[in-house]
Design a binder for these strands. Structure first.
Lengths: 216, 216
DNA sequence: GCCTATCCTGAATGACCGTTCAAGACCTCC
DNA sequence: GGAGGTCTTGAACGGTCATTCAGGATAGGC
């Protein structure tokens, strides 16, 4: 049965490989430039199989969005759990945005998603869900900070909205490699706004003392 | 000669009409969805003429970007001159972003430009120029305010960067009609940030007294 | 060990669309 | 008033894909 079980999983694995390939290709060429053939090659299968599983190219796009959502959620949670205490956590978020990984590529993917969301309902739903979740996470950190009295804001919801929007706006410049924008500047610009927005006192600004990053 | 002069202008007028049509079509369908035929129909001419003037569809896109830049500059200047004094001017900017016109459509065009800028050099150059100019205008207002001692910031450049980025970020939500985002909220969220960022005292917050909008 | 449903392939199909082109209109300048 | 350039047209061309399809492989149930 072990062999059977493994074998039974094969089609499912193929399917997922195609979804990952779809995301990779979109990241590379954008929705507008992604071809069925590109996806098939990237996934190491045939065009036919892409269509067999998802019915159409648009279907593959749509399906890949839900994978994207799932992974985003997962990674977000993993990332935030790495760090304790509202201030370090917020600082961590500032650094996450700049990303230690292939952040520029990721932000480009985000831009692609925004534009697709203008005209495609699946994309619209996905980006809305992603954004809501993301703002929710930020909100949670803010609430923690308020409860601990290290943050102060009269309108947490508005503060979160602004901080989230600021990150998107800075991300555009990062994604487009605007001259003068670097990951370091990204982090510092956002962090400074967060400090201002949430009335974090300079005493609390240092990340060292009350918690801090675990590593990396 | 009057008739001759008018006639001589005709080709040039056609050309410009095509460029405007190009922008209109891109606004409507995005770069990815804009066809030569769409542009021709929108401009009331033939496909052939579009290619005759601009060599290729990409050429028409590129040329339309410079028209876009020109008009953006012009409108920006016109808009800012409508109002005097740093605080009212800043407030005016907050309202401009939300736009009393077809702002949502315009922001969508902006999104399109951002994504195209990822892979197309003309678009990259255009958006960079647009953005630089825009930040320059904001900077000028900030400097005015600093000189008049109604604004206070330790790092005007960073403040401008943040306020510009925040506007872009909020614009995404406006463009995508994120539930809960309206033009009114857009203005207020941004304005509140500007007040915080530039240390505008509540006394100066009211737009009425020392200058204010002219009308509309 | 066959049978059937699922999975998979890649060649064939056909639509779409950018670009080319041959022809004609129109203007200007001589 | 006509020669020669610039404009303008729309039909024809050719390339690029998404999608279809006919046929195989594979595997689990009988």
């Amino acid at each position: 049965m072990t062999k059977a079980a493994l074998a039974a999983k094969a089609p499912e694995e193929r399917r997922e490989r195609i979804l990952r390939a779809t995301i990779a290709v979109v990241r590379e060429r954008g929705f507008a430039g992604a071809r069925v053939t590109d996806i098939a090659v990237e996934a190491g299968t045939s065009q036919g199989l892409v269509l067999y599983h998802f019915g159409s190219l648009a279907g593959a796009f749509a399906a890949s969005l839900t994978l994207l959502e799932d992974e985003f959620y997962e990674e977000l949670e993993r990332n935030l759990s790495e760090v304790v205490g509202p201030v370090p956590r917020l600082r961590h978020i500032a650094e996450l945005g700049a990303g230690y990984g292939p952040a520029v590529g990721d932000w480009r993917l985000w831009l692609e998603l925004w534009v697709r969301a203008i005209r495609d309902d699946d994309a619209r739903a996905a980006r809305e869900s992603l954004d809501t979740r993301w703002r929710g996470a930020l909100r949670q950190v803010v609430d923690e900070g308020l409860a601990a009295r290290v943050f102060a804001t009269s309108d947490p919801k508005a503060s979160v909205l602004r901080l989230a929007a600021l990150m998107d706006g800075l991300a555009i410049q990062l994604a487009l490699a605007d001259p003068g924008m670097t990951t370091g500047k990204f982090t510092e610009l956002w962090w400074k706004s967060a400090v201002l927005e949430l009335g974090i006192s300079p005493v609390n600004t240092a990340t060292g003392p009350q918690g801090g990053r675990k590593k990396r």
